[in-house]
C-alpha cells in the first residue's frame, strides 16, 4: 500500500471531519457567523485537497471525472486502508 496515498487521504478525512462538525453545529445555530466562516474556509480547503488527491489516485465519488480506464473501482476501498502506515 502506498504510504503517501494513506497520508493524503487521512488529511482529507481530517478536514472533512471539521466541516461535518461545523455543519451539524450550524444546523441548530444557523446565525453563528464565526462558525459559518470556519465552515466556508474548511469547505474550500477540502475541495482543494480532494482535487489533488483525485488527480493522483482516482475519484472519491462516482460523480467525478476519471482518467481512462474508470478509476473509481480501484483498490484500496476504505475498509482496506492500512492506517498504521500514516
Amino acid at each position: 500500500m502506498d504510504r503517501e496515498q494513506v497520508c493524503s487521504l487521512r488529511e482529507i478525512m481530517e478536514v472533512d471531519f471539521v466541516i461535518k462538525e461545523t455543519a451539524l453545529y450550524l444546523n441548530t445555530h444557523p446565525t453563528d457567523e464565526r462558525a459559518l466562516r470556519l465552515h466556508n474556509t474548511y469547505s474550500q480547503k477540502l475541495k482543494e485537497l480532494e482535487s489533488i488527491y483525485q488527480a493522483k489516485y482516482g475519484p472519491l465519488t462516482n460523480h467525478e471525472m476519471s482518467q481512462f480506464p474508470w478509476a473509481y473501482i480501484n483498490e484500496p476501498w476504505p475498509w482496506e486502508f492500512d492506517f498504521s502506515l500514516c
Binding site: 487521504l9 482529507i12 478525512m13 472533512d16 471531519f17 472519491l60 465519488t61 475498509w79 486502508f81 492506517f83
Partner: peptide
Amino acid sequence: WIYEKKLQYPVRVDT
C-alpha cells in the same frame, strides 16, 4: 445519497 470513498475515522486494528 452518494457514496464517499473514505471512512469517517482512520480505523486501525492491532490484533
